[in-house]
Amino acid sequence: MEKLSIEGLTYIFNELRTDNKSLYSCLLINKEWCRLVVPILWERYPYSNCEESQEKYCNTILSCLPTSSKQLLIDNYISLPSTILSEPLTFNYVGFCKFLSNDIIDKIMNFVFEGQALNVNFSKNYLLSQEIYKLFIRQCEGIKRL
């Protein structure tokens, strides 16, 4: 059986760009397909309005925070969800994101401070949002240096 070229697969996956269900299925075929599909899924707002999907997205972004940021948040009594991963992630997911909107930051803030009024402690809200913005800015700086 012949193998499709990387260029051919990339073309096909880009044609499926708006069909998340098909792209998610492609993730499971093999490592090569996964490596090609993940950036496509993450370049735009990668989750649906499903609560479970939003939680996974927030966990992934928070898991991408450097150890120093996580420690700073903990030192300032900001409890990060226990579900964020302490081990390295397979991909640099934040690096695939093509844009950042306030909506994304708000969803992450709501996730972390679930059950608390967001305006209760301005300094905690500010600190968390700044660490998330720094995470995305570092990715932009890394791209510019290449």
Rank of each mutant, 00 (worst) to 15 (best):
T18S: 15
T18Q: 14
T18H: 15
T18M: 13
D19E: 15
D19M: 09
N20K: 15
K21E: 10
K21H: 11
K21W: 07
S22I: 13
S22L: 14
S22K: 15
L23F: 13
Y24F: 15
Y24A: 02
Y24S: 03
S25R: 12
S25V: 02
S25Y: 01
S25G: 05
S25M: 04
S25W: 00
C26N: 03
C26A: 11
C26M: 14
C26T: 01
C26I: 04
C26H: 03
L27G: 07
L27R: 13
L28G: 03
L28Y: 09
L28A: 13
I29H: 03
I29E: 05
I29T: 11
I29Q: 04
N30W: 04
N30V: 03
N30E: 09
N30I: 03
K31Y: 11
K31T: 15
K31I: 06
K31H: 14
K31V: 10
K31Q: 14
E32I: 05
E32F: 04
E32Y: 01
E32T: 11
W33T: 05
W33C: 05
W33Q: 05
W33S: 04
C34K: 12
R35W: 04
R35T: 13
R35L: 03
L36P: 10
L36E: 09
V37C: 04
V37K: 07
V37Y: 10
V38F: 01
V38D: 00
V38H: 01
V38W: 02
V38N: 01
P39F: 10
P39H: 11
I40D: 00
I40R: 01
I40F: 02
I40P: 00
L41V: 08
L41M: 07
L41A: 05
L41R: 08
W42S: 06
W42H: 09
E43I: 05
R44F: 07
R44W: 04
Y45F: 15
Y45L: 14
Y45P: 00
Y45R: 15
P46Q: 06
Y47N: 10
S48E: 13
S48M: 07
S48R: 09
N49G: 15
N49M: 12
C50Y: 06
C50L: 10
C50M: 06
E51K: 12
E51D: 09
E52S: 11
E52L: 12
S53F: 07
S53P: 00
S53G: 11
S53V: 00
S53H: 13
S53C: 11
Q54T: 01
Q54C: 07
Q54F: 00
E55L: 00
E55H: 01
E55V: 06
E55S: 08
E55W: 00
E55Y: 01
K56V: 12
K56S: 11
Y57L: 12
Y57A: 06
Y57E: 02
Y57D: 06
Y57G: 01
Y57R: 02
C58E: 07
C58P: 04
N59D: 15
N59K: 12
N59R: 13
T60L: 14
T60R: 10
T60C: 12
I61F: 06
L62Y: 07
L62P: 08
L62S: 08
L62A: 09
S63D: 07
S63Y: 08
S63N: 02
S63P: 04
C64L: 01
C64T: 10
C64S: 14
L65S: 12
P66T: 07
P66I: 10
P66S: 12
